Simulated scan of single mutants.
Amino acid sequence: METQEIYKSFSSNKSLNELLYKMKAEALRLNDLKFELQFYITLLYKPIFKTRTANLYEILARYKYDIGILQERRVKLQSHVNEYINQINNKIENEITTFDDYFINNYDDLEHEIFNFHVKVSDFKFGFFEYIQNVSLN
């Protein structure tokens, strides 16, 4: 039986600068993932696969579709992260140091959404790499 990861937020005791740093790090991580996903698509179009692989084209098409879904989700998340960075910057510029419940709940939701996305990306990578290793030419 697989242990299920439970998300826990720790934002309630963080400063605005810590939240800003974390969101900027996530924005960078999501931006880097853009290039990684583009590389996977490029790899799928290269003639590196064994020709006698069962359902090769169907499985490659599924991976292309999955990468497209991940890319769409990444773009939406990156947009949300950038919006949140702007909100934090506004609070810092206006010297607002208190957190209202709405701000904290939005941050927690976004952080949870990012966590779940990275879990999906990790699951995808594991399956993708395992498949590519099995069907690529030696």
Rank of each mutant, 00 (worst) to 15 (best):
V81Q: 04
N82E: 15
F128Y: 14
L60I: 06
I59H: 05
I96H: 05
A61F: 11
F117A: 06
Q133W: 04
V121H: 08
R62N: 13
R62Q: 10
E72I: 05
D100I: 05
I104Y: 03
I96S: 06
T97K: 09
T97C: 03
Y63S: 09
P47Q: 12
K50G: 06
Q87G: 01
D108M: 06
R52E: 15
E72V: 06
G127K: 14
F129R: 02
Y131G: 02
N106C: 13
R73Y: 09
E58H: 11
N55S: 10
D101F: 08
L60E: 00
F124Q: 04
V75M: 11
Y65T: 08
Q133I: 03
E130D: 14
V119C: 08
D100H: 08
T98A: 04
I59Y: 00
N82Q: 14
E113F: 12
L70W: 06
H118L: 08
I67W: 04
K64F: 02
L110Q: 02
V121Q: 10
N89Y: 01
G68L: 11
N94R: 08
D108C: 08
K50T: 07
Y107M: 09
E58W: 09
R52C: 11
K120R: 14
E113M: 07
N106F: 06
Y102E: 12
N106M: 10
D108A: 08
S79W: 08
N82P: 05
Y131N: 00
R52W: 13
F117Q: 03
E93Q: 07
F129Q: 06
Q71F: 14
R62A: 09
Q133V: 05
I85P: 07
E130H: 09
V81T: 12
N94S: 13
T97R: 07
I88T: 01
K46S: 11
T53A: 02
L56I: 06
N116M: 12
Y84K: 12
R62M: 09
S122E: 13
D109I: 13
S79P: 01
E83T: 12
I85M: 05
I69P: 01
V121E: 10
Y63I: 06
N86D: 08
R74I: 02
V75P: 04
L56W: 03
N116L: 14
R74D: 04
I88F: 02
Y107R: 08
N86C: 04
D101G: 10
P47T: 04
N106L: 09
K91N: 07
R74Q: 13
Q133L: 10
S122R: 15
D109Q: 15
D66S: 12
I69N: 11
V81I: 07
T97L: 12
K50P: 02
R73Q: 15
T97I: 07
I88Q: 01
K76M: 13
F128T: 07
Y65D: 12
N55F: 07
H112C: 15
K76H: 12
G68E: 14
L77Q: 01
F117S: 08
V75A: 13
K125D: 01
H112R: 13
Y107E: 12
I104A: 05
K91D: 01
D100K: 09
L56H: 06
F99T: 00
T51G: 10
